[in-house]
Nucleic acid binder design. Structure first.
Lengths: 246, 246
DNA sequence: ACCGTTAGCAAACACCGTTAACGAATGCGT
DNA sequence: ACGCATTCGTTAACGGTGTTTGCTAACGGT
C-alpha cells in the first residue's frame, strides 16, 4: 500500500470529512430518535448544505459510512478489552460479549442507526457472491460476523463445547445454518454452528432490545437480567459463568 | 354509556376517519421502511393535506392511533386463535405465542411502526401513576401486558410451573420485577414473575428481530428456529412442547 | 328557512434533500 | 512566477414534507 504523499489538500479534506461525521454523530445522539438532517449538520459547521455534497454523495451515503465506522469502532472496543483479558477461553467469551453490550448501551443512538440501516449485503460474510440477495440486508450480520470470527478462533484454539446429541438438534434449523456455513468459509461441524447461532441470537436480541429502549419498562437497569441470560447461555456452550469484575 | 344517537354527520366522519387509517396502513406496508406521509395519504384520497387535520391533531397523533389499533388487532387475533384452542394449558400457551408471532411476521411494517413509536407510558400497566416516567415509554409493554394477563389467567387456573429454587433466582433481577409487580396488580409469587419475564423476553426478542428483518441473513425461514426456541422456553415453564398442527 | 357547525380548500411558512451554475481560492506544472 | 485546472464553497432554485391560517360552501339541527 503506497501511501501517496498526503498532500495538504488531502489532509484538509480528510479533516473536514471527519468533522462532518463528528457533527453528524453529535446531532444523532442529541436529537435522540429524530433522523439527522444534512442542513442541520451544515448549519452547525457554519456551512451550507450543498457544500457537504463535495464530501458525500448523499445523506444516505453519509449514514452508511457512519454505520461502517461504528461497526469498526465496536470491533476495536472489543479488541481493546480482549487485549486486557487473559488466555482463559471462558473469560474471553465473557469479556467480548460484555464489551459489545457496553458499547451498544453506551451508544444507543449509534446502535439504533446501525440497526435501522440496510447493511452491505452478504458481502460482509466473506467471499460469498450470491446474485440473488446481493443487497438490502440488515447490518446485524456485521455484528454476527464479528462474533463468528471470534467463535471460530476459539474453536480452533480448543474445542471445549460439548455438542448436543445429533438426535437432539433441530434438523430444519441446522440445515439452513449448514447452507449458510457453505457460503462463508468456516471449518466447524454443523452442531457447533447451531450452538453458536443459538447463543448469539439469544444474547444479541437482548442487547438490541435494551439498546433500542424496549426493556426500560421492565428493568430500570437491564444489566442484571443480561448477566442472568449470559449465565444461562454460556452454560449451553459448556463454559462456566465468569462474574463481572469491577 | 349513552350512545348519543349517531347522527349522519358522525357516521360520515367516522367513515372517512377509518378510510384515512386504511390508506395510511396501505401506504405504510407499500413503502416498506419509508415513513408514511400526510400529504401522500391526502393525495391518494383525493384530498389536500390540511383537510386531514380535521380528523387528527397531527401525523404523530395519527400514527399513535394506528399503533393503538394494531395492538388491538393483535389482541383480537390472539383471542380468535385462543377460542379455537382447547382447555389444555400447554396448548393454549403455544397457540397464543404463535398467534402473536404470526401476526408480527405477516405484518412487519405495522409491527415496525409499533416498535419504533413511543408508547403511552406505564399507564398501560394498570393504575400505576408514577410521576417520574409518565411518558415516552416503548410500546413493547403493550404486548408484554397482553401476555402477562394471559399468564396470570393461566396461573389462576392452575399452577403447573415448577419454580426454580429461591437460591437459584437472580436476586437483583427479581427485585426489580417485584417492584414492577407492586406497581401493577398481579397476584403471583416473585419467582413466577421472574420465570414469566424471562420466557417472555426470550420469545419476544426473537419475534421482534425476525419481524424487523434482522435474522434474514441467517435464516431464509425463521420459523424452525423460533419453534426450537419455543421448545426450549416452554420447558422452563414446566410445560411440554406442543408441535404446530397444520 | 334560518343559521351555526363543519369539511374541505388555497395560500403561506418553515423545514428538508438535492441539483445547477457560478466565483474564489488553492495547488500543480511549466 | 505565471497560468491553468482542480477543488471548495457559495447562492438560487426545484420539489418534497408537516403545519397554520383564513376562507368558502355545504350540511344539519331547530
Amino acid at each position: 500500500m503506497t501511501t501517496t504523499t498526503e498532500s495538504r489538500r488531502d489532509r484538509q479534506r480528510a479533516a473536514t470529512e471527519a468533522e462532518i461525521k463528528e457533527v453528524a454523530r453529535r446531532q444523532l445522539v442529541a436529537s435522540e430518535g429524530a433522523e439527522l438532517s444534512l442542513r442541520g449538520i451544515a448549519r452547525e459547521m457554519g456551512m451550507t448544505a450543498p457544500a457537504l455534497y463535495r464530501y458525500f454523495e448523499s445523506l444516505e451515503a453519509l449514514t452508511q459510512e457512519m454505520c461502517h465506522d461504528f461497526v469498526h469502532e465496536v470491533a476495536e472496543a472489543i479488541d481493546a478489552r480482549m487485549a486486557g483479558a487473559g488466555r482463559d477461553l471462558a473469560t474471553r467469551v465473557h469479556v467480548a460479549i460484555r464489551a459489545f453490550r457496553d458499547w451498544a448501551v453506551a451508544n444507543p443512538a449509534e446502535f439504533g442507526l446501525i440497526f435501522r440501516s440496510k447493511g452491505p449485503g452478504p458481502v460482509a460474510f466473506a467471499g460469498a457472491e450470491q446474485a440473488e440477495w446481493t443487497d438490502d440486508c440488515s447490518h446485524s450480520q456485521s455484528f454476527a460476523r464479528l462474533f463468528l470470527d471470534l467463535f471460530v478462533d476459539l474453536w480452533a484454539e480448543q474445542q471445549p463445547i460439548e455438542l448436543p446429541d445429533e438426535e437432539h438438534l433441530p434438523r430444519d434449523v441446522v440445515e439452513q445454518l449448514a447452507a449458510l456455513r457453505r457460503l462463508i468459509t468456516v471449518d466447524v461441524p454443523d452442531g457447533a454452528v447451531w450452538v453458536f447461532a443459538h447463543a448469539w441470537v439469544r444474547l444479541y436480541s437482548v442487547i438490541a432490545l435494551e439498546a433500542l429502549g424496549q426493556l426500560e419498562f421492565m428493568f430500570a437497569d437491564v444489566e442484571p437480567y443480561f448477566e442472568a441470560e449470559l449465565h444461562a447461555v454460556v452454560h449451553t456452550l459448556g463454559i462456566d459463568y465468569v462474574p463481572r469484575e469491577p
